[in-house]
Design a protein around this nucleic acid. Structure first.
Length: 352
DNA sequence: AACGACTCCAACCGCGTTCTC
DNA sequence: TGAGAACGCGGTTGGAGTCGT
């Protein structure tokens, strides 16, 4: 038995909203709130719209204090940083950018930001005319230096982020174990995942031999086989997963994680190092993030270190106290009871 | 001016999660 | 406790606008 439709599809209007419909919806919600039931709301107002459509329209367009377009550099950085950390969880990212909606950020990322980053990096690579090996070596040194210099604790990261001085500290969110065999084959290039991995890579740098910290003066232990790891059976994967979260490898190998996590939120998963895993243009880009470029990704380098390591100790998700509020996401607006006027007033007055 | 390619974004769709009874 | 309803989210699509030829 399939899922019941949320509304009578035959009797609902679809497509762009008219100014009259907008006015009706806005006026009603401002006066009465949503009543906690989007499905019933269109009937109350006399709109021939699906409740879900009303909700979307309100959240993405009619809600007070919505900003459209004109993303700042700071916002770009926050989006990229959070994308690296948590992936395409647009609602969480949106919660950190006041006035932005998840849909807006998603569109911005897919249509502009991603291309902007890719385009810049390609140009610089072509202009630099450097060999991949040289660039990787430079970047690796850069990464290791930043790692050695790193040492900020949670609190410092929190305050600097809140002052907009630095990209945020954002721990890996816990996810169900996503085994390594989930990674796409080269022939099935997964754009979201791969671009994210790319950003992670640009934020740090593996060495050419596959060890992320080869030559680094810190005593980092990261078995090379974890980097070029491959497993073909669930048993192998489980065993490797257990290995992965042992204390000796957690800290260093986090840098190469895909963002997957185990139940405790300890990130697991390895970005494949084999040449040819990324498509040619992405591989080219991966090698083009040279020191001193203004491609806009350098901030990821220092941030990745801090993101994963706190005073030399791997923290689980539960142990971390994110400075970024997960509450008060824009979508919480519609949960407000009828007495939402106070909230509205505060929001509006602070914005005017 | 006309046309096709491309870009952008509002809106839709489907599915996992949460809530309610 | 389980089923159905509703919510919330991320991926995708359609079409209007823009650009290049």
């Amino acid at each position: 038995m399939g899922r019941a439709p949320c509304c009578d599809k035959a009797n609902v209007k679809k497509g762009p909203w008219s100014p009259e419909e907008d006015a009706k919806l806005k006026s009603f919600i401002e006066q009465h709130g949503t009543g906690g039931n989007w499905i019933a709301l269109p009937q109350k107002i006399g709109l021939k719209r699906c409740g879900k459509s009303c909700r979307l329209r309100w959240l993405n367009y009619l809600r007070p204090n919505i900003k459209h377009g004109g993303f700042s550099e700071e916002e770009d950085k926050v989006i990229c940083s959070l994308y690296v950390s948590i992936g395409s969880r647009w609602s969480i990212i949106a919660a950190q950018l006041p006035g932005r909606t998840d849909n807006d950020i998603k569109n911005y990322w897919n249509t502009r930001l991603k291309k902007k980053l890719l385009g810049k990096q390609r140009k610089e690579y072509q202009a630099a005319g450097r060999s991949k090996g040289n660039i990787m070596r430079i970047k690796q040194e850069n990464y290791c230096n930043s790692r050695i210099m790193g040492g900020q604790n949670n609190q410092t990261m929190s305050s600097t982020f809140l002052n907009n001085q630095m990209v945020p500290y954002w721990p890996e969110l816990p996810e169900p174990v996503a085994p390594f065999f989930d990674r796409p084959e080269p022939a099935h290039f997964n754009d979201h995942t791969s671009v994210r991995k790319l950003l992670i890579k640009l934020g740090g740098s593996p060495s050419s031999d596959g060890h992320p910290c080869h030559g680094c003066s810190m005593n980092l232990q990261c078995p090379p086989d974890l980097i070029t790891y491959s497993a073909t059976t669930p048993d192998m994967i489980n065993q490797r997963s257990a290995d992965m979260i042992s204390p000796s490898v957690q800290i260093d190998c986090q840098f190469e994680t895909t963002g997957y996590g185990n139940a405790e939120g300890v990130a697991m998963g390895i970005v494949p190092q084999e040449s040819g895993w990324f498509p040619p243009d992405i591989e080219e880009l991966m090698c083009s993030n040279v020191e001193g470029s203004d491609g806009g990704l350098e901030f990821l380098c220092s941030w990745d270190d801090h993101m994963m390591v706190n005073n030399g100790t791997q923290l689980s998700w539960k142990e971390m106290s994110s400075p970024i509020s997960l509450d008060a996401a824009p979508s919480d607006y519609d949960r407000l009871p009828q007495g939402m006027a106070a909230f509205d007033g505060d929001q509006l007055s602070s914005d005017q």
